[in-house]
Write a protein that binds this DNA or RNA. Structure first.
Lengths: 113, 113
DNA sequence: CCGTATCCATGACGATACTG
DNA sequence: CAGTATCGTCATGGATACGG
């Protein structure tokens, strides 16, 4: 999650903790993870190949964070060699249209410029 | 909040530039700006008060970036003292439901835990 | 009122090497 | 295959002082 640093003066309790909510997709690669899980479960190595440029360390970190947040589900498959399958939780899947909307606006802004 | 850093190695062009699109709301405070502009124009000082904890420097930086990206419109009002009005562009306004959706999922995840 | 300038701290990220 | 360990870099952001 991206940390919201607080000013020295303690702010009044936020009515809407927007920062906390947006931290669901914080990090450079979290949106990519959600994006590439949109059509079903993917293994670690598949995600790593899908998301070009991400390092194993960071991908692990983002997957762990998304798992803690309840967005992503991690499932170990007892095989040889052992594999791990990641998928979107029910609520995690609801982030997909939001990301798609942002991407859509991004593309249209790009075309306009 | 979170920052979308691009890797130093340029990714191949055939990839969907998800990172570029998501950079529209990169930075810890960009979603807040869009959020607090949702009901119409706001002045710099109003935004600074709305978005508790943001420094003037960073708020300026994010507003400039959003302006360059075409999300936000900056309008100087010739008054005494001079004021500045920020508002969402037409395409920028389309980011609002996306952010609202993420916030909604965030709240529901929070309630579940 | 609306910023800019400076300095500094944090931590997200990449690269590489290594492990169960 | 699916990570972990370590090290270094650099963008983001906070605090404070100052400027138009």
């Amino acid at each position: 999650m991206v940390k919201l640093r607080r000013s020295r003066v303690e702010p009044p309790p936020e009515v809407c903790p927007l920062g906390e909510c947006m931290s669901l997709i914080s990090g450079a690669w979290s949106p990519h993870v959600i994006w590439y899980l949109r059509d079903g479960p993917r293994r670690f190595g598949e995600l790593r190949a899908d998301i070009k440029g991400v390092s194993a360390k960071v991908l692990t970190a983002r997957l762990r964070q998304l798992e803690r947040d309840g967005v992503v589900i991690r499932r170990e498959v007892a095989s040889s060699p052992p594999t791990v399958e990641y998928s979107l939780s029910e609520l995690g899947a609801e982030l997909r249209p939001a990301i798609a909307a942002i991407v859509d606006v991004g593309h249209r802004l790009k075309r306009r410029n």
